[in-house]
Design a protein around this nucleic acid. Structure first.
Lengths: 207, 207, 207, 207
DNA sequence: GATGAATGAGCCTTCATTCAT
DNA sequence: AATGAATGAAGGCTCATTCAT
């Protein structure tokens, strides 16, 4: 597939990568390439496309509001988000650095993923706050920080191949921090001993 | 100054920006440009230089360990870090996307800023934990997440001109969250010194 | 043909001749030029190629050893040699003066023509001496001098458009001189045994 | 000395050699260089100057006519000529290949050395023929061939570092050949006036 | 439709020449 | 007078784009 090849080449060598190389990698001639994408920038933008058709996790997260286990819901969402960001971030960076001037309107008609994520999480936090399951001064800011933690994991991996722990474990830590920081102070609850973040409770019952 | 001009042009138009344009913007001839920087990639790498000689805040933060107000210390550090990242991040991204192959060893001899930050904060958290002023399962992960929140502020600003609140306010929120999540459980719980998030409970019997 | 054009241009204007000019003269674009010859020096060396696939006369000369008319054989060879040298000499000179550093190994894998010629003639003279049809102190030196006479004809023509007589006539003269100088002294002259070129007779009284 | 340096550099790297390099080698600044020689071609032509102020041997040779030992006179002249040619030939070649268009009038006001040599030797041969000390069909052609043998020695050395024997020995051989070929047929052969090399014997019956 | 040779505009780089010091 | 930094025109080379096959 042409876009596949273009993506690989562009992400490795930048926008400067010659079209011949893309054509060769895609197994087609340059003629064919340019019949499909009349100019290089068009090919580039198509290859760096950032449309995300996988919003399953977004809907799941919102559906969980008020009902499910917040920790589980957030962890699942976070893992999915990391996966998505791993795909999207390099492309967004590539676009921004390419000097291709179409840059700002590339994720039309949708909002750029980062802002989508922000909005979603903000809505989620706000919703859970309304239900009294979360307490924080600014849900938006909280969302910002939460997402930032996740993005940073991707950034460290992408820039420096630095991955201190597996994604899932990282997510657990981040979610735990979040929940601890936003735990509503109920009647100074003696009945919730701990067990919040308890990482490895997978098998046996604690009792 | 040449590097100033080169930086501006490169950051706006990418590595593809013609050297004439840089020369013109710098107010010198192309000849002069190439006498100072023998090749375009060299000029590029010099302009994208990421060496950071301003580690004042790093030292201040570490000096505050055990003594000052943690909130204040962290907020000050965070604001400085954001400022530094605002400068550095676009350059790192530019380098990575440029296809210039010197890419990976560009911040030699020092470590890349991102990892420097991570290390510093980890050390800081660990130090404060030792003093009992902070409690968390994994100081490294905590640092990761904290820094991530700050980076993300820069990213949103850089990519989408999105800046929900002023940096200082954002920082306040993030630090508050952090401190809330890592507040050691004082007097009322003195018999549970650790074991909070305790990731490594693998061996010893709890009893 | 590209090489044809390149040759003409290079021989007239030197290595400095712009590639555009060659392209124009060859009736192609610069792009095509550089697709065929990736760098200018490569084009240059290809155009100045000195490989000589026309060794007919060399074989003919050697085949004539001992049988044919020496004068005719030598004249034919000399005329051919002059023709070949007229092609080769300007190129060799061009290469040497161009400053292109590949210079010394350009006629690999074969020996350079000059030395080829020297070797051939030396072998020829030696062969004819063995047959008693020629007498000289040093066949190699004789060959050297003979060839030199021919080269010089080309040089005068090339440098100064000076051509005192037609090539064929010149050749006749040179061959005649050679044959006269190397005529074996037959029976009637038995009293002059050697003393031919008598190298060190500088001092001794003539008597 | 500037010209010295220029010569070295030009002869090694061709006309393309940068003027900076020459200046550096000459130990002066580029400014000084261009104050002395307003343009590069002028510097080049000055460095490749071919004026020969050492005509001693030419006069000596002519003075020897009819008196001295022809062999010795010719050998001395030949050695001097080789020395001179070793200096001049590379320069002439360089000029011709440089593409510098002043090329044809560079040895004004004198004749180019090659032709000077030719003329001189022709006159010498003719003079000695008049005295009966030499016999040949065409003194000019004889001179041509003689000089050619000497030039070729220089060429082989220059192009291929090929020097079969020391110059002096080579010269002895060449002169010996010449003298043998042009030895007047003394007393015993008075009825063969000319007809030796007989250039135009093509048509008429010899009778 | 697919191909890939040909094009030529554009860009990096060099270097002769100038000129303020 | 000497210097050498600055200039900018020129040239080698690349590569997006076209088009005849």
């Amino acid at each position: 597939m042409i876009l596949e090849a273009a993506r690989k080449v562009f992400l490795k060598r930048g926008f400067r990568a010659p079209t011949v190389e893309i054509a060769r990698k895609a197994g087609v001639s340059e003629g064919t390439l340019f019949k499909r994408f009349p100019t290089k920038p068009e090919l580039f933008m198509a290859a760096m496309n950032v449309e995300t058709n996988d919003q399953v996790w977004q809907e799941q997260l919102m559906r969980s509001v008020g009902t499910g286990d917040m920790k589980e819901a957030l962890e699942a969402a976070a893992v999915s988000m990391i996966q998505q960001v791993q795909i999207i971030l390099p492309r967004v960076m590539m676009i921004h650095s390419s000097g291709v001037t179409v840059a700002m309107d590339y994720y039309l008609p949708n909002k750029p993923p980062v802002l989508q994520h922000l909005e979603l999480l903000t809505r989620y936090f706000r919703a859970e706050m309304k239900r009294g399951r979360l307490a924080c001064a600014s849900p938006e800011l909280q969302a910002h920080a939460f997402i930032g933690s996740l993005y940073h994991y991707v950034i460290c991996d992408f820039f420096h191949r630095y991955r201190p722990v597996p994604a899932r474990e990282y997510v657990r830590g981040v979610v735990a921090t979040l929940l601890r920081a936003t735990r509503p102070e109920r009647q100074q609850n003696a009945k919730q001993p701990r067990a919040k973040i308890a990482p490895r409770r997978t098998k046996g019952p604690k009792k």
